[in-house]
Amino acid sequence: MEYTGNPDVLGIYMKGEIATAVLGTFDASAAKILFTPAVPFTPGQDYEVREAGQKLSDFSIPAKTVALAPKIMGIYPAQDSVPENLLKIYVHFSQPMQYVGSALDFIKVYNTTEDKEESIFLALETELWNRRHDRLTLWLDPGRIKTDLIPNRELGLPLKEGNAYTITIDRKWKTAAGQELTETYRKQWIVTAPDTRKPDVENWKLDAPSSNSMKPLTIHFDEALDHELAQESIGIYGLDGKPIPGKRKLNKWGSTLHFTPSKSWKKGNYEIVVDPKLEDFAGNSLHRLFDENLGNSTRTNEDKSDYRIKFKIAAE
């Protein structure tokens, strides 16, 4: 069939689609007719050019090949044992992941002690991804963790102390470019007693280097802390109130932070300043417990804007 010259009845269709043409613009101002789709054509998809329903031509978009296969870089907490009141996990991917569908379609949790599949995560319409879309935050259902809320009364805690769980992440989960994960990923958890203590900076231990070195200051927390918040909630200051620039490196367990200054340490007094939003695995922040009965509240420092620890750099 030949083109009759009327661009008004031209259309681009997916192969096999009868009713709905692909949205885009036709530009018939030049000798050639140029069609620009509203969004890029889909790799691996076949299309047809039709005029008034009659096929004129067809074309295919080659499937994309990506050199590096996508992987899961880590699940945090990285520990094999987690507290019964664990509030959230982070999943890090090597590439941006697909923006369609629900993450929970690809994540299964199996209670190996009781031999049953469990639904422990909170489903959110707007999922909690970072800007690059390669880190996902999942909350364990907070309504089940808070004592006496209806979900807690009806279903109990999402995780049970003493039980073992397997988290399975399906390889069918695709990247934004449409490539499946290299393999199905599994992580085992043993669930331990609930964490009913707030992190307490008073109990952190420091290894301070001596002056004229670029060795890291090491902060040993009193308990393992949230993998993302521990990297962004802690600042190092001189006593003049000026920040000390440097790099932070959290160990994989979330229990130790190394701070390496950009310039050699100078002898003198310093302060570690901690944002109260810092949380442990159970969502207990410096200010307050995640689940707290106000009858015997430990909320005492609600107005405190930060927590400070003084330390000294001694002469070498």
């Binding site: 030949e2 083109y3 031209l10 681009i12 885009g24 613009t25 050639k32 007719i33 140029l34 069609f35 620009t36 789709p37 509203a38 969004v39 890029p40 054509f41 050019v49 005029e51 004129l56 031509s57 074309f59 978009i61």
Partner: peptide, 13 residues
């Protein structure tokens, strides 16, 4: 005949 459409222009227009 309708020329091959400009598939390269994959811009969001």
């Amino acid at each position: 005949m309708l020329p091959i459409l400009a598939l390269a222009g994959l811009l969001l227009l």
